[in-house]
């Protein structure tokens, strides 16, 4: 908030909308804000509803009886659950650290007007935003050439560089780092890396937070890489655990007549809707807890990064 904005919190309503209008604003914004979180609360409630209640009154904000069955089923996954929780965190943290490091290192020279090759490197990253080789060739390169198969690398490396984030980061440098600062540091005899780490990075913290959050989100919500490159259950992230339940159900739905009666058992052993709701809660909870803390930086970061991007 700027100091000018703070003035408005004073006791008298100088140049402000009438109280009546403001109440209408509160109503509209409040309702929309509520609508943004109510579905999540609803899913939490459903995950704690008993099967009986669901049969009688359906999904409801006030179930007739509560139950921990869904969570018992989830905990029955035992090691698999905690393992994939760990994997999700590990992949997200490792991926974000690496990715942000590479992003900053790439974006910084791009912002330096005195760097001769910036035109070339800008194009190099930008071009890949539009053209790609498609699934099969990428798969071959990643798996056969780079050995990404059943390891954490397969879940981290293919998402390391995002040209979009590079642009955000570059713009951030452009808008918040005065060029004189670099010149001054250079005159003081500071090396390029020292300048970047000691002088520049402290200024662009909000930009880093923004890129970090966007990257972390990408890793946290990712499941397709796991489908492509990983068959070992020890490596499944949480999002894929949910996706697999979904995909199993979908596949059986499409092919049940082909699989015939022997598929009936498979369908019977599919996780119940409430259990899937409980898994959803597990996935969303860390996001819901973590992001309010990031938010301050991200709001600042997004504004500067995207406005100009």
């Amino acid at each position: 908030m700027t100091t000018a904005a703070k003035k408005n919190t004073g006791a008298f309503r100088l140049n402000m909308v009438s109280r009546k209008t403001e109440s209408v604003f509160h109503l509209i914004l409040g309702l929309f804000a509520l609508a943004c979180i109510i579905p999540f609360i609803f899913v939490i409630i459903i995950s704690f509803s008993s099967e009986n209640s669901i049969r009688q009154i359906g999904y409801s904000f006030v179930p007739s009886s509560w139950s921990l069955d869904a969570y018992r089923q989830v905990f029955n996954l035992g090691d698999a659950l905690w393992r994939s929780y760990f994997n999700s965190f590990f992949i997200t943290i490792a991926g974000t650290v690496l990715s942000v490091t590479m992003c900053v290192l790439y974006a910084y020279p791009l912002f330096r007007k005195d760097y001769k090759l910036r035109g070339f490197f800008s194009f190099l990253s930008f071009f890949t935003m539009i053209f790609g080789g498609g699934l099969i060739p990428t798969y071959i390169v990643c798996k056969n050439l780079l050995g990404m198969s059943n390891n954490y690398a397969a879940l981290i490396v293919p998402m390391l560089v995002s040209p979009f984030n590079i642009i955000i980061m570059r713009t951030f440098f452009q808008t918040s780092v005065p060029f004189d600062l670099i010149e001054a540091a250079t005159i003081d005899g500071s090396g390029e890396y020292t300048t970047l780490v000691r002088v520049i990075l402290p200024i662009v913290k909000p930009g880093i937070a923004t890129v970090a959050l966007l990257t972390a989100l990408g890793y946290w919500n990712e499941w397709f890489l796991c489908l492509l490159y990983v068959t070992k259950r020890d490596l499944y992230p949480l999002q894929y655990l949910l996706m697999e339940m979904q995909r199993n159900a979908e596949f059986l739905a499409r092919n049940s007549s082909m699989i015939g009666a022997s598929g009936a058992q498979a369908v019977a052993s599919l996780p119940s809707q409430t259990m899937r709701m409980a898994v959803v809660v597990f996935i969303v909870l860390p996001i819901a807890c973590a992001y309010p803390f990031f938010q301050r930086y991200v709001v600042a970061g997004l504004t500067i990064g995207s406005v100009k991007g």
Partner: peptide
């Protein structure tokens, strides 16, 4: 500084093209 991401781009984005 640009090397890590450049190598990545060449291998994972350009090679499959």
């Amino acid at each position: 500084m640009m090397l890590p991401a450049t190598i990545w781009l060449l291998l994972i984005r350009y090679l499959p093209m």
